[in-house]
Amino acid sequence: MVQQNNYQNQPVQVAAAGRRALTGAAFGLALIALFLAGVQHPDPAWGKLWMIRPLLIVPMAGALGGLINYMLLHYHRRLGIHKAVAVVLSALIYLVGLWLGSVLGLVGTLWD
């Protein structure tokens, strides 16, 4: 008799993946909002709506990081990695993604 692994047949749970993405986006939005709240006198050359770009891009990077976190933790057995390694790897991917999203969102304004 051949044993079949149940983890190979697990479908993606859209609601759980969406919650992880929303959590990542909310954390990114809170972080960039706190950072932008400290700007008292922005450069007039940036324009009136200079905050929109970082307030959109950083939460999108956070949402992607949250989705990657879900995928790594959901499929860690199929990928052949230990769960602790998947947690650390997903945290590193999230932090790097959030940093790159911040750079992309702030380029030309606060990131010179």
Score class of each variant (00 low, 15 high):
residue 1 M to Y: 00
residue 2 V to P: 11
residue 3 Q to K: 15
residue 3 Q to P: 12
residue 4 Q to K: 08
residue 5 N to K: 03
residue 5 N to F: 15
residue 5 N to A: 09
residue 6 N to W: 10
residue 6 N to S: 13
residue 6 N to L: 09
residue 8 Q to S: 08
residue 8 Q to Y: 09
residue 11 P to E: 14
residue 12 V to M: 13
residue 13 Q to F: 01
residue 14 V to P: 02
residue 14 V to W: 10
residue 14 V to G: 02
residue 18 G to Y: 04
residue 18 G to R: 03
residue 19 R to M: 15
residue 19 R to S: 15
residue 21 A to Q: 06
residue 23 T to A: 10
residue 25 A to C: 07
residue 25 A to P: 00
residue 26 A to Q: 12
residue 26 A to R: 11
residue 27 F to L: 13
residue 30 A to T: 11
residue 31 L to R: 00
residue 31 L to K: 02
residue 32 I to Y: 04
residue 32 I to A: 06
residue 34 L to S: 15
residue 35 F to I: 04
residue 35 F to G: 03
residue 35 F to N: 07
residue 36 L to T: 02
residue 38 G to S: 01
residue 38 G to I: 07
residue 40 Q to G: 05
residue 40 Q to M: 09
residue 40 Q to R: 15
residue 41 H to R: 14
residue 41 H to Y: 10
residue 41 H to T: 15
residue 42 P to L: 09
residue 44 P to V: 11
residue 44 P to M: 10
residue 45 A to D: 04
residue 47 G to N: 02
residue 48 K to H: 13
residue 48 K to W: 09
residue 49 L to C: 03
residue 50 W to S: 05
residue 51 M to N: 08
residue 51 M to T: 09
residue 51 M to D: 02
residue 51 M to V: 03
residue 52 I to E: 01
residue 52 I to F: 05
residue 53 R to A: 12
residue 53 R to F: 12
residue 55 L to D: 09
residue 55 L to T: 11
residue 56 L to F: 10
residue 58 V to A: 05
residue 59 P to H: 15
residue 59 P to N: 11
residue 60 M to Y: 09
residue 61 A to Q: 10
residue 63 A to P: 01
residue 63 A to R: 00
residue 63 A to C: 13
residue 64 L to I: 04
residue 66 G to R: 02
residue 67 L to N: 11
residue 67 L to W: 13
residue 68 I to C: 12
residue 68 I to M: 06
residue 68 I to R: 07
residue 69 N to Q: 07
residue 70 Y to H: 12
residue 70 Y to G: 00
residue 71 M to L: 14
residue 71 M to G: 12
residue 73 L to G: 05
residue 74 H to K: 15
residue 74 H to D: 11
residue 75 Y to I: 00
residue 76 H to P: 14
residue 77 R to D: 06
residue 78 R to A: 06
residue 81 I to H: 06
residue 82 H to V: 07
residue 82 H to L: 15
residue 83 K to A: 08
residue 83 K to Q: 07
residue 85 V to K: 11
residue 85 V to S: 14
residue 86 A to H: 10
residue 86 A to T: 02
residue 86 A to Y: 06
residue 88 V to K: 15
residue 88 V to S: 12
residue 89 L to I: 04
residue 89 L to Y: 02
residue 89 L to M: 12
residue 89 L to F: 09
residue 89 L to G: 15
residue 90 S to N: 01
residue 92 L to Y: 04
residue 93 I to S: 15
residue 94 Y to S: 08
residue 94 Y to Q: 08
residue 95 L to P: 05
residue 97 G to Q: 06
residue 99 W to D: 00
residue 100 L to H: 01
residue 101 G to P: 04
residue 102 S to P: 01
residue 103 V to R: 14
residue 104 L to T: 08
residue 106 L to G: 02
residue 108 G to A: 07
residue 109 T to H: 15
residue 112 D to A: 12
